[in-house]
């Protein structure tokens, strides 16, 4: 299907969080309280994000420490192009991949992808009318980690495509395809659940 071009995907609605940017500038000047404040602001989001890479709370805490040490050392390199939160996610992701010696979150299960139909034979409205939000949440849990990560960054942390691409270190097109894969996988999981009930 034809789509509108990729222009107009940059963040123009919300300016970068001035409070966070100020904290980064203070950190760059060696202000330890600023790093503590930044940690207090984003600890939950960062910790939760790092738990996408490991199920061990202790390892996630170590990765969070790695991230904060890297923030302290690299605060001067923050240019303000993306929101501070996106910059933090990027650092956290690189620390996690480095520490856990892997480049990516686990790939989507091939068997799962094979069940995703190329074209949707059933209208979305009819499908959505038949499922509850709890069923969608349960279906989310079955998604591949890569897809959940894309949804997390897009809908929970509301990052732009460009910011997500920077965090994941992938091209913009890959961000879109991961989100679309997530949607198609979800649709397949929901449909499978529906068929099982019948």
């Amino acid at each position: 299907m034809a789509v509108v071009g990729v222009r107009g995907i940059g963040r123009a609605v919300d300016p970068p969080d001035e409070g966070d940017a100020l904290l980064i500038r203070r950190i760059a000047h060696g202000d330890r309280q600023a790093l503590t404040d930044l940690y207090l602001r984003h600890r939950q989001a960062l910790f939760h994000y790092l738990l996408q890479f490991t199920s061990d709370d202790g390892v996630a805490e170590e990765l969070l420490q790695d991230t904060l040490v890297a923030v302290w050392k690299n605060a001067r390199s923050y240019k303000g192009d993306a929101r501070v939160l996106a910059w933090l996610f990027g650092i956290a992701r690189r620390r996690a991949c480095k520490r856990l010696r892997r480049r990516e979150l686990p790939q989507a299960d091939l068997a799962e992808l094979e069940t995703v139909p190329a074209e949707d034979p059933e209208p979305e409205a009819a499908l959505l009318a038949s499922v509850t939000r709890a069923e969608i949440a349960a279906a989310l849990a079955q998604l591949a980690p890569q897809h959940r990560e894309a949804l997390l960054l897009a809908f929970v942390h509301e990052l732009s495509y460009a910011e997500i691409a920077a965090v994941l270190e992938v091209p913009l097109g890959t961000v879109k395809s991961r989100l679309n894969h997530a949607k198609r996988s979800l649709r397949a999981v929901l449909r499978a659940g529906e068929e099982a009930e019948q």
């Binding site: 949440a137 989310l140 809908f155 929970v156």
Partner: peptide, 9 residues
């Protein structure tokens, strides 16, 4: 999907 993500994630 967005609503479920905000809730579950």
């Amino acid at each position: 999907l967005a609503a479920a993500s905000r809730e579950a994630l």
